[in-house]
Design a protein around this nucleic acid. Structure first.
Length: 1149
RNA sequence: GCGCGCGUAGCUCAGUUGGUUAGAGCGCCACCCUGAUAAGGUGGAGGUCCCACGUUCGAAUCGUGGCGCGCGCACCA
């Protein structure tokens, strides 16, 4: 028996009950066991950073990550879902620093590396708990108990294996490069990290004079003018660059006594003059090439000794000045600045390139050295006394002031541009800085990565060649190492004598090294604190203590290099590291690679999407240039086949979501108020997943009635009456099979059902087929819309048209006292609801389960699975779809809708009965026309009922109400007629439609002529449109024109009046809060003879509709209401002792 | 600067290979129902499809160039 259903569903409460049910009965486990051994659907969980609270955007990701595994499981596939957590890296370290109130690396060292990483691990655990709560609350089924965690020893060792493999193949190298450097944090960052930290800022920019010098090294009156937005790099200046084929000029201020002359690119003179509000005269013109080789004085004497320029021997003979010389460079442009570029090789990649090129010109060891007066912590060294010990960016102003005092500052202004800051500490500007760092040779694999990418299915498609493809095209070597603490330690040990290195692929391999020592450091720590996680043995600082005998130099030791690695490498290694592969989990890895499906937000193009693809391509792809057989271990695509890229979620105001702006509600609030299903449905059915979606409480709330509540109302309607009528699926059949849609039904085949039932089931099956097609193509948005339309059809057509059947007398049973038609209605709605519950299960798992649990398990009996998620997804049965019926029902719904529109146009309310409605089908010549018309005609009663009319007819003389016009079918004729189309179109439009159609019917073809041409047309070249003649209450749609008779006879008017009276009484009953079974006595008072006569003529009707045991006329002292212009008083009294007992559900006559 | 995406009703968004009357939900107005009822239904109003030029018989749809918004990239010295 079905449990009673509350009319006002409390979704959050229902969800809590369902969640408990899942937990107690282990339903997720069962759903896996059910499919064990079946083909796999492989899903990878992109590990959320266990740092910071989950926000609404994460809810979307988790909803989509849940939907497809649930769906594929119901489709019979085996989909393991292993949770994972990203736990290393800067985000965690920065969070911990905030917590203990420190910032710089020195402070961490002072705090102690050991307690610091303990803090990091604790912090990660805290956030993992929060994430687990969210995961369960939103109904994301994933195995949290067996999650992979990037700091676990087995995970770290997998990463070690990957790095050792790359190292042994020469793909992991230490390089001296200009890197983006986070000075406060003391580490380099990867391009991906840098890209996340750009902010628009105004920096001081300065135009500085670099005086040319004479042979003795004395400044002349001529100066180069260079421009920079980083004044702090000026003390490290080494060169000035010009473009050889660009025109330069020497200028002097107009009319000035000052002898000072400036050199800059000619196209930029006007710009500079405007900035300075001074006029210049051109003294001399010369090409850039003529400037190359000249020496100048740098703005600061940090490194340049006084006196003439120093020279050194060139590699190819001769000599040249070592520095502070003008060089030619192609990167010089006239887009901004002066066409003369200040070159400080320590602080720019191109600048560094200039230095490298210069060094190559000189004899080995004699060329320019790298000049750098900035320490790794971002402060000036003593070499630049003015700024010694201060952060470089803070010295910009003092530097400008000093330049001005010495007459070298030509101009100063604010320059607004994007500049990178640390992505985790966004007050810290990054600087470019020369640093030894570890890199992965990804750029060598650019083409391989592109080829791999090409085989991936991206949704939306443009990601492949757009954002992601572009990112791969511009690939640079992965700056891997971090001079930090909480991360996977770089598994490279270096010989202290020779500097030679080797990579270690596992902890066991390390322990097996000869002369191993230092493992006791962790052992002792563990003894002192037994709570200490064993995973920390492979972390700093413990791992740093482990040393062994050098194979390269007898008597010396191998020590680990100090760096840890970029945490993005951790997550990218997840496809194999989650299993600890290759040290363990070979079977799992082989079975679970590559993924069939992953999904994350678009910011992961540079994050997890890239790190996975890069690592996988390098490890399992072919090495470029290599022809070794078996080099390509995995065919493309890997490591994932399909990726849904989600748009970013915006706050209520359309801006980026931000805690400080408070422009979004916490997910918890939404869950507690509306429920997880409401949020899921809003995300899944509201828009395609890749559009940036606005997170908006009002929109979430308003999305509930159209689907969730509507579904619930149908379900509630069904249960209310099924309980009253004792509809018992289990009792009727003994057991019901839920495996196929053909549930037992007391011996009746679907084909024996009535038409409305067959229509409903046709719609159900057509919807299932369509949804399966869409979901297989990862189009859950389209599938959700289709599902929504089905629920609309059930609610607004099937239930509405079937109400009388549910209220009819008799039991829903097959016996002699049973009502067969009623039973059919119950079976149909029952099957429909069960199928909808299954169709909806991946989208709204809680409500679907609630409906299933009551209808199938409680009401249906032993044949049903205990959870909707343990059933098979309905794929629809094509042979149960009656295509004609579907089309015709759509037609009749359209006719009803048009009829109402026609009535509304004449202000004829539906309560007023009308004599007749006539329907003209728009296209009498379509292949279905005859059948459809006959069918419609046989449904006259239905149309009359919907429209409250006495008669219905398909109009045989359409000319009375409508005219037919023919139109060219442009799609057909366009290709054939080309330029003549407009003339043909006009000629056809002008033709007498009826005559033309008659001719066509007679001859099968007709010729239409126009000035200068003609064409022979067939029926399919034309479209027929009908339109109402003026003066008729008609409404036209694409399929039909519906005309209602507006003529009102006295009898019709009387009937209309009576219905108004009934309406008034019902309203009165409602206002008195009567039970719907209460019997009443009615006394009417009216001075209108027409109204009285109308009521008297329909006394029985009035009594039956209002459940009145007696209707009479009499006096009245209460309010008089208006009934279509007639006054009416209503006195109403509940009959004594006549409760609802005598009235059953079939009480209406 | 280069690249990607977007721009359709008051709001949030659909719009399939270019085709004649551009749709939905919400909101608004009017109406209906009153046995799913603090629900439900119907109808209506509301649109220079960002702008311009072009391709085409025909453009919301294709092309070019703008404008606006969002995002990404980075040799912005």
């Amino acid at each position: 028996m079905f449990a009673p259903v509350r009319g006002q569903p409390d979704f959050p409460e229902i969800e809590a009950g369902i969640a408990a049910f899942w937990r107690e009965r282990g339903v997720y486990r069962k759903s896996l066991e059910l499919r064990r051994g079946a083909p796999r659907f492989v899903f990878f969980e992109g590990p959320p950073t266990a740092n910071g609270m989950p926000h609404p955007g994460h809810c979307l990701t988790r909803a989509i990550k849940d939907l497809y595994p649930r769906y594929r499981t119901m489709r019979g596939e085996f989909c393991e879902r292993k949770a994972g957590w990203d736990t290393h890296g800067l985000p965690v370290e920065v969070e911990v620093c905030k917590e203990i109130g420190i910032h710089s690396k020195a402070e961490i060292e002072a705090y102690g590396v050991e307690p610091f990483i303990h803090k990091c691990q604790e912090s990660v655990w805290r956030y993992m708990k929060e994430w687990e709560t969210l995961t369960e609350r939103i109904g994301f089924w994933i195995d949290l108990s067996d999650a992979y965690v990037t700091y676990q020893q087995s995970y770290v060792e997998s990463v070690w294996w990957a790095l050792a493999t790359l190292f042994d193949r020469g793909l992991l190298y230490q390089g001296h490069k200009i890197v983006w450097w986070w000075a406060q944090g003391g580490t380099a960052l990867s391009s991906g990290e840098v890209g996340q930290g750009y902010k628009e800022v105004a920096d001081p920019s300065v135009y500085v004079a670099f005086p040319l010098v004479d042979a003795a090294g004395r400044p002349t009156n001529r100066s180069l003018v260079a421009w920079t937005t980083t004044p702090w790099t000026l003390p490290s200046n080494q060169f000035a660059a010009v473009k050889a084929d660009l025109d330069y000029v020497v200028v002097r201020e107009t009319g000035s006594a000052d002898e000072a002359e400036y050199i800059l690119a000619e196209p930029l003179v006007a710009t500079l003059a405007e900035k300075l509000k001074r006029a210049f005269d051109i003294v001399e013109r010369l090409p850039g090439a003529a400037l190359v080789g000249r020496s100048y004085l740098p703005p600061f004497d940090t490194f340049r000794p006084a006196g003439p320029p120093q020279s050194a021997p060139l590699a190819g003979g001769g000599s040249d000045t070592i520095g502070w010389r003008i060089v030619a460079a192609d990167f010089v442009t006239t887009d901004s600045g002066t066409g003369i570029v200040h070159v400080a090789p320590a602080f720019g990649e191109v600048d560094y390139g200039v230095l490298v090129a210069e060094q190559a010109r000189f004899a080995p060891g004699t060329g320019p050295a790298l000049l750098n007066c900035v320490a790794p912590d971002g402060t000036f060294t003593d070499a630049f006394a003015m700024g010694s010990g201060r952060f470089v960016k803070e010295c910009d102003r003092d530097i400008a002031r000093d330049l001005r005092a010495r007459g070298l500052l030509v101009h100063q202004e604010q320059y607004v541009h994007d500049y990178p800051f640390c992505w985790r500490a966004d007050a810290d500007p990054l600087i470019q800085y020369p640093r030894k760092s570890w890199f992965i040779r990804t750029s060598q694999f650019r083409d391989a990565m592109l080829a791999n990418n090409a085989a991936i299915t991206w949704l939306p498609e443009h990601i492949k060649d757009g954002r992601f493809g572009n990112f791969l095209e511009t690939n640079v070597d992965w700056a891997l190492s971090r001079e930090r603490y909480w991360g996977t330690p770089l598994p490279i040990w270096e010989c202290e004598a020779t500097g030679r290195m080797e990579a270690i692929p596992s902890y066991a391999a390390l322990l097996a090294k000869p002369g191993i020592a230092g493992t006791d450091v962790f052992t002792r720590a563990k003894a002192a604190n037994p709570q200490l996680s064993d995973d920390l043995a492979v972390h700093k600082p413990y791992i740093d203590a482990v040393t062994y005998d050098s194979p390269f130099a007898g008597g010396s030791r191998m020590r680990r290099v100090p760096e840890v690695i970029d945490c993005w490498f951790d997550s990218g290694a997840m496809p194999f590291a989650q299993w600890g592969w290759p040290h363990s989990g070979t079977a799992e890895f082989e079975a679970q690679f590559p993924a069939d499906f992953i999904s994350e937000a678009i910011d992961q193009t540079r994050g997890w999407f890239y790190s996975q693809l890069a690592i996988s391509t390098l490890l399992f792809g072919r090495t470029p240039g290599s022809s070794q057989p078996g080099d390509a271990k995995k065919p493309y695509p890997h490591p994932f086949r399909t990726c849904i890229v989600l748009g970013h979620m915006l706050g209520e105001d359309g801006q980026k979501m931000s805690k400080s702006r408070r422009n979004y509600k916490e997910p918890k609030v939404i869950f507690d108020t509306y429920g997880a299903d409401a949020l899921r449905w809003y995300f899944l059915a509201g828009q395609p997943p890749w559009t940036s979606i606005r997170y908006n409480e009002r929109a979430i709330r308003e999305s509930i009635p159209e689907f969730l509540l509507r579904l619930w109302n149908v379900y509630s309607f069904f249960v209310i009456y099924a309980r009253i009528d004792g509809f018992d699926p289990a009792g009727l059949t003994g057991s019901v099979d839920d495996r196929s849609f053909a549930v037992a039904r007391g011996g009746r085949a679907v084909s024996d059902y009535g038409e409305l039932d067959r229509w409903m089931l046709s719609e159900v099956h057509a919807t299932a087929i369509d949804m399966v097609g869409r979901l297989d193509a990862f189009d859950h948005f389209g599938a959700a819309q289709r599902l929504s339309a089905l629920v609309e059809a059930v609610s607004n057509w099937y239930v509405r048209r079937s109400r009388e059947r549910f209220w009819a007398a008799g039991r829903a049973d097959v016996g002699p006292e049973g009502n067969r038609d009623k039973l059919d209605a119950y079976w149909t709605l029952y099957q429909t609801l069960l199928t909808i519950a299954r169709l909806a299960a991946p989208f709204v798992p809680f409500v679907s389960e609630e409906i299933w649990r009551n209808l199938a398990v409680a009401g249906g009996g032993a044949g049903f699975a205990e959870s909707v998620h343990l059933t098979d997804y309905p794929i629809g049965e094509p042979d149960l779809i009656d295509g004609d019926l579907v089309r015709r029902m759509a037609l009749v719904r359209d006719v009803a809708s048009l009829g109402r529109a026609a009535r509304a146009a004449e202000k004829l309310k539906v309560r007023q009965p009308l004599a007749k409605v006539e329907v003209i089908l728009a296209d009498a010549t379509s292949p279905h026309a005859t059948g459809d018309a006959a069918w419609l005609e046989s449904h006259a009663e239905l149309v009359c009922d919907e429209l409250n009319v006495k008669g219905f007819e398909i109009c045989r003389e359409p000319e009375r109400y409508i005219t037919r016009t023919v139109q060219a079918d442009l799609k057909k004729l366009g290709p054939r007629l080309g330029k003549d189309l407009p003339k043909a179109r006009d000629a056809i439009a002008k033709a007498d439609g009826d005559a033309l159609l008659a001719a066509l019917a007679r001859d099968g073809r007709v010729t239409v002529a126009w000035a200068g041409g003609e064409a022979t047309l067939e029926r399919e070249d034309l479209l027929v449109r009908t339109s109402a003649r003026p003066g008729w209450a008609a409404a036209e749609g694409r399929q039909a024109v519906v005309v209602v008779s507006t003529e009102l006879t006295p009898a019709l008017v009387a009937e209309g009046l009576v219905r108004e009276v009934v309406h008034a009484v019902q309203s009165h009953r409602k206002s008195l809060d009567l039970e719907f079974t209460d019997r009443i006595e009615l006394v009417f008072a009216t001075e209108s003879p027409d109204l009285r006569a109308a009521i008297e003529a329909h006394l029985d009707y009035v009594a039956a509709e209002t459940l009145a045991t007696r209707v009479s006329f009499g006096g009245h002292d209460g309010p008089i209401i208006d009934v279509d212009g007639h006054g009416l008083g209503i006195s109403l009294q509940v009959t004594h002792g006549a409760g609802g007992a005598a009235v059953d559900a079939g009480g209406r006559s």
